[in-house]
Design a protein around this nucleic acid. Structure first.
Lengths: 243, 243
DNA sequence: GGGATGTTTCGGCCGCGGCCGAAACATTGG
DNA sequence: CCAATGTTTCGGCCGCGGCCGAAACATCCC
């Protein structure tokens, strides 16, 4: 019973995510960074021993991978698929709460720019994707994407080569629906490379204890100058009509 | 703490999906079609009253929408986002369990032939639909179906008249995606009539405490002789190319 | 070695929630 | 109005699983 078995498998995965403590753990790992068990216990808001049980389950189910370093054990999301699934659930959850606009400053920071697993999300991520698309650097279709000839030159000039490490089975360039903006941002190896390079250049810096990214002055100038984002960004809804 | 709030919202959604019965319901609705509560009970494998509770929860959480038609209540996925989330979970589930083919005898019986609500599903149901289609008794399109002139004569000769009781609002003939085969079988009043008549003729008998149907010797001869199923059925994948 | 720190295992408590039978409610058709 | 059918509500049972305290490991540092 293929479909039934698959539905039950879905239920298993969803049930794992469907516990507040575990959802907090996964959420904390959405940055793509690895965190130690103790940090995750803090993030989850439950005791270390309870967290240990949760981590064992998540690892057993291959949602997390773990590596030991001394007396610490560092956990991270086992694959981008996991991040994508959690993000999809966030989209649904966000849609389910249509008007809930307290929107504290922290929330606003997350909406402006954040890391999603290993790439850039939030208004910055969406604006970059839209701008790259508009300028013919990439093509984004429903669930797939590609880099144009011009795009390859552009990215090389920016100092990244998403084609490197061709052994990787990860898609080169694919859209990922942004839960706060409900429009696509860039994932895949290109998304990864863009985030790494932006961090390297100091265009964005991670906000501690958060997935939020702070855009520096240099970053603002860079995104506007090189990527063609409008100067009054991030207030405007850059390319809001693109999709 | 926005991040925690959002994680809890994710947990809520995931917990809803994380019950086998509800996952089956969502899975059954992944085609995008609306299904009645009773059909979903059949799909979920639990009683109608239990299903009712699940449907209420899913609807309350805006995962499903419902519309009433007479004494039926038709449920469908509330948005494509929901389907995307379920699909993302399926991706994770599929990746997490690369090979897992136990397929016990009970499972095999269900795959061979079972009742779905009030019509025949499983390999038998799919083979019948394919054969009827191939021989020009019926036409099946994406979400609708029809009986041909020849088909009416054929079904009358078989001893059923799906046109009787024209007041019924149920569709006469419509395809229903089979979970185990992933290809359509026959539902609607024609599907109902086919199952009733097959039971009447003793071609199939219900297996107690199961949705499985056992195909009798007479049934095997009948399905082969009258409906043109290949004699080595149900081993072969009758008309596997039809759709 | 010994003590501090990080992590897991064990054991037991407890409540949430899924399940079904019975029955009520709703709609349709006769 | 009554009977049949589809759906929901109610009530009660029961087990799964999350939680924590205590304690056992594991590792590091002195």
């Amino acid at each position: 019973m293929t479909a039934i078995a698959s539905a039950n498998a879905v239920a298993e995965i969803a049930a794992l995510i469907g516990d507040p403590a575990r959802a907090n753990i996964l959420s904390a790992l959405m940055t793509g960074r690895a965190l130690a068990a103790g940090e995750l216990a803090c993030a989850a808001g439950v005791s270390p021993q309870t967290t240990s049980g949760h981590l064992a389950k998540l690892t057993e189910a291959r949602l997390l991978s773990v590596e030991q370093q001394g007396r610490h054990r560092y956990y991270r999301l086992a694959s981008p698929d996991i991040a994508r699934a959690v993000e999809a659930l966030m989209t649904v959850a966000a849609a389910g709460v249509p008007r809930h606009r307290p929107a504290g400053p922290k929330d606003e920071a997350l909406r402006t720019a954040r890391s999603c697993y290993d790439h850039i999300a939030g208004r910055l991520g969406v604006a970059l994707a839209a701008s790259l698309c508009r300028n013919g650097r990439i093509l984004l279709a429903d669930g797939a994407g590609a880099i144009t000839e011009d795009g390859w030159r552009f990215f090389a000039a920016f100092g990244i080569d998403p084609g490197a490490d061709p052994r990787s089975r990860r898609p080169l360039c694919r859209p990922c629906l942004d839960w706060s903006e409900r429009r696509p941002h860039l994932a895949g190896r290109l998304g990864l490379a863009l985030l790494s390079r932006s961090l390297e250049l100091g265009w964005v810096v991670p906000v501690s204890d958060s997935r939020a990214l702070r855009i520096t002055g240099a970053g603002h100038r860079g995104f506007v100058g090189r990527f063609g984002l409008s100067p009054d960004w991030p207030q405007g809804r850059e390319g809001a009509q693109e999709f």
